[in-house]
Amino acid sequence: MQNSVQSFCNALESLDRIQVEVLFQQALSGGSAIEVVEQLVVPALEQIGLRWNEGHIALSQIYMSGKLCEELVDRVLPPCDPDRKLQPRQAIVVLNDYHMLGKRIVYSVMRASGFELFDYGRMDVAELVERIIRDQIRILLISVLMLPSALKIRELRNALNARGIQLKILVGGAPFQFDPQLWQEVEADAMGLSAADAVAIVQRWAGEMT
């Protein structure tokens, strides 16, 4: 499988759709959909995430490969499939900001990794608190691009605390890359530099919660 992962990864990075499809179908002939997701797609996206963290590949490659994988996985593992990792309940949002690409990437990679999550789009703090309560969210992924939006996360945490709501908050986006201490300052529970980091962190939290 190691060789297949590397080949799949190379095909994704170069956006060779035909080769991606061939390798995906080959893997499906030897395993179930969820096995292919866990043993081929997730490791490939992890590797791509690592190469992004190290500055070897670009945002456009991350976005296009994540979108491609999301489409492949949706075909074999539709949103209602019981093998989707629906629990714990989780959502992703752009807080305050109007820059949506980071959320779109993480959403695709999470779904391509077998997770199902609410996509809240863009929200302010007050609106977000109400949605979190209504949907009984236990893990929240927040994407921001601008520093003032990152600072609003602490406002969100305070508002949630005031309502007695406890949930895990995972943050990501440029301000956290430029200031590695910022996620702690805004009282997030973790920070991810890449979408693959998000998958690993949510997997860990999900394991702790069940």
Binding site: L15, S60, Y63, M64, H99, M100, L101, R104
Partner: peptide
């Protein structure tokens, strides 16, 4: 046109 749609256009 939005970042995501623009990247798709480029490729």
């Amino acid at each position: 046109m939005g970042f995501d749609h623009y990247l798709e256009l480029i490729y």
